[in-house]
Amino acid sequence: MPVDAAKALTAPPRTGTVSWTASDVLLYHLGIGSGRSATDPGELRYTLESRLHVLPSFATVAGGGPPGVIGGLSMPGVDVDLAHVLHGGQSLTVHRPLPAEGTATTTDRIVAVHDKGRAAVLVLRTEATGTDGPLWSCDAEIYVRGEGGWGGDRGPSVRREPPTGPPDRTLDLAVREEQALLYRLTGDRNPLHADPEFASRAGFDRPVLHGLCTYGMTLKAVVDTLLDGDVIRVRSYATRFAGVVYPGETLRVRMWRGDGEVRVTVSAVERGHAPVLTDTTVGHS
């Protein structure tokens, strides 16, 4: 079996070092759509090094190395066709504000392998520590089609009830035609996001936007509209990727305020509001 659950779970953690500069942060912010009003003071916090605030979701690409999905496929016990892989979900816990420039020691390990019948789901945990202590922890859920059915643990299946009542804020975000080509420069060179032939082999009409790009766009929308533009207030951020986004589409982000959290849904406007992100929460101070 290409996914060897026992081997993946018992493999020693993989450690490494990542470093980033303000230029890396600026590129990430541009990749998720910052700076569309180039002189807006709110946007300059993301696009001008002298005012730079780091959106916490930058942690998913810090260092420019292979992020969650690609990184997980290089772990022991995992040998699968990239065309059968999807990013199922992502969570982030922020332990302290991310600096605009820095170096961190990272530890990666597979912490769960779930048998969903028609697919396997791997959970890759990445923990980053700087000179002053822990910086962030990330869990990436990696969905591998056709690799389930060995009788393993199905894993958690409880979903939160969707938000009720009218949202506190609704925001439409335009995805640029070239956005996936720009975002991939942050480190995720999966051809699914650039190569039409590869995308067709994976079952898509054309290349799709990175799930982590939508992830970053959505967090920025929440910070800018409900958290007074203050990135430091973000404590955690989790989502489930419910559907793809194609470059050129419009995302509708609906936000509901809660006690210490914002609940969010994201849909693709042009495809009848097909779900894109669900079970999405931003924990904040």
Results as ranks from 00 to 15, higher is better:
Y215D: 11
G152E: 02
P207Y: 09
P67G: 04
D195V: 03
G187H: 07
V123H: 05
A100Y: 04
W136Y: 15
Y237F: 14
D168K: 08
W136M: 11
L44H: 09
L251A: 09
G88Q: 03
P13T: 02
R145H: 08
G258S: 12
L219G: 00
W150R: 10
L73T: 01
S23L: 15
P41D: 09
V123Y: 02
L27I: 07
E261C: 14
A128Y: 03
L185Y: 07
H29A: 11
P66V: 13
T278S: 14
T225E: 14
E161S: 15
T265D: 15
L251M: 09
T281S: 11
H284F: 14
D40G: 08
L212N: 09
D172K: 08
G31T: 12
L92P: 02
P99H: 05
T21I: 10
G243S: 01
Q179I: 13
R271G: 01
R14M: 10
D228K: 03
L55C: 13
E249F: 00
P12T: 11
G260W: 10
Q90L: 07
E177L: 06
T239S: 15
D132V: 02
G88M: 04
D24I: 12
S236Y: 05
G283Q: 09
G149C: 11
V234H: 06
H53S: 15
L55Y: 10
C138Y: 10
P12V: 07
A83H: 01
R51N: 14
L227V: 13
A100C: 08
L173N: 04
E178N: 14
V262E: 11
V144F: 00
P67Q: 04
V85Y: 01
L182G: 06
I142M: 04
L219Q: 10
W20L: 08
G211M: 10
R125A: 04
V208D: 05
P134V: 03
R118N: 12
R235A: 09
R14V: 14
T281N: 05
T265Q: 12
Y237D: 04
T214W: 03
E141W: 14
G146N: 06
V262F: 12
Y246S: 07
M75K: 06
A199M: 11
D224M: 09
T39P: 02
L209G: 06
T107F: 08
V264N: 10
T239P: 04
N190M: 00
V262L: 13
V121A: 02
R189Q: 12
M1W: 01
L173Y: 07
P76G: 05
I142Q: 03
R240Y: 01
M217R: 13
H29W: 09
L277I: 11
C213F: 11
T60C: 13
G31F: 08
Q179Y: 07
D224C: 07
R176C: 07
E49T: 12
D40Q: 07
G130E: 04
L55E: 14
D40I: 06
A238F: 07
T280M: 06
K7G: 02
L185R: 10
R45H: 12
G88C: 04
V253G: 12
A238C: 10
R233A: 15
H53N: 15
M255D: 02
